[in-house]
Simulated scan of single mutants.
Amino acid sequence: MVRWEPAAKERLQAAALELFSTRGFEQTTAAEIAQSVGLSERTFFRHFADKREVLFYGQELFVQVFLDAVEGAPRDAATPDVIARVLRAVSQFFPDDRRAASRVRQAVIEQNPALRERESHKLAGLGTVLAEALRSRGMDEPAATLAAESTTTVFTLAFAQWLRPGENRPLTEITSAVLGELQNLIAPSATSL
């Protein structure tokens, strides 16, 4: 008879992060993750394709936040307003109670070249999907790609600051500051090449 295990996925994720951070990603097996929370390896694989997926689970929800913010923007909104709306939405996706786990996750990723590559690929894919959403709104090229890549870069820089030891500002505040830096860089007073 199969036992129902409440919150198994969340328990597996928490255990995996703990083991990855203390023992290392490569040194931790899926079986060890499952055993550490009293589950079977089979249960682990019912929830995750492999141990990397523990770190990247929820990526589609993350991307959807970006897309929903673009779709929810008024049709006549200026591009900077759409970008600000997207950044505000994705920043709210990471409330302060997620910071500790996000720091651990990022530290694990930074210690493994294959995981760093996957994280970079995830962000590149995000830029592509976001550019397509902006084009669907009627934005021409290269503006759509520039807006998408700029949005992704602002988020990436803000997120890295949010994860720094000792940082306690909300991600929304940091993201707003980084966006302000970008806006200052490309102020209307900039000269042509």
Rank of each mutant, 00 (worst) to 15 (best):
1 M>C: 06
2 V>H: 10
4 W>V: 02
5 E>C: 10
7 A>K: 09
8 A>D: 08
10 E>T: 01
10 E>I: 01
13 Q>I: 12
19 L>S: 08
20 F>N: 03
20 F>K: 02
21 S>K: 00
21 S>F: 02
27 Q>V: 11
30 A>S: 14
32 E>S: 04
33 I>R: 03
36 S>G: 01
37 V>W: 07
37 V>C: 09
38 G>E: 14
39 L>H: 01
41 E>S: 10
41 E>V: 10
42 R>I: 08
43 T>A: 14
43 T>R: 13
45 F>C: 09
46 R>Q: 14
47 H>L: 08
49 A>K: 05
50 D>I: 09
51 K>E: 12
51 K>W: 15
51 K>R: 15
53 E>M: 03
53 E>V: 06
56 F>H: 04
56 F>K: 05
57 Y>W: 07
58 G>N: 08
59 Q>G: 06
60 E>M: 08
60 E>K: 11
60 E>F: 10
64 Q>C: 01
66 F>Y: 15
67 L>Y: 08
74 P>I: 00
74 P>Y: 05
75 R>G: 09
75 R>Q: 11
79 T>S: 06
79 T>Q: 03
80 P>V: 12
83 I>P: 00
83 I>H: 01
84 A>P: 14
84 A>E: 12
87 L>P: 14
89 A>T: 10
91 S>K: 10
92 Q>A: 13
92 Q>M: 09
92 Q>K: 09
92 Q>N: 05
93 F>W: 15
97 D>K: 07
102 S>K: 04
106 Q>S: 07
106 Q>T: 15
107 A>M: 09
109 I>R: 07
110 E>S: 12
110 E>F: 02
112 N>Y: 02
114 A>R: 06
115 L>V: 06
115 L>P: 04
116 R>A: 13
118 R>S: 06
119 E>H: 06
119 E>F: 04
121 H>L: 15
121 H>A: 14
122 K>T: 02
123 L>D: 04
124 A>G: 07
126 L>R: 00
127 G>Q: 00
128 T>G: 11
130 L>S: 12
132 E>C: 01
132 E>V: 04
133 A>H: 04
133 A>V: 00
135 R>V: 01
136 S>M: 05
145 T>P: 05
146 L>V: 09
152 T>N: 02
155 F>C: 04
157 L>H: 05
159 F>T: 00
161 Q>G: 00
162 W>E: 03
165 P>G: 04
169 R>F: 11
169 R>S: 11
170 P>I: 03
172 T>F: 00
173 E>N: 11
178 V>N: 04
179 L>N: 09
179 L>K: 09
180 G>E: 12
181 E>K: 12
182 L>Y: 13
182 L>G: 06
182 L>K: 11
182 L>Q: 10
183 Q>Y: 12
186 I>Y: 15
187 A>R: 15
187 A>Y: 07
188 P>M: 06
188 P>L: 07
189 S>F: 13
193 L>W: 13
193 L>S: 11
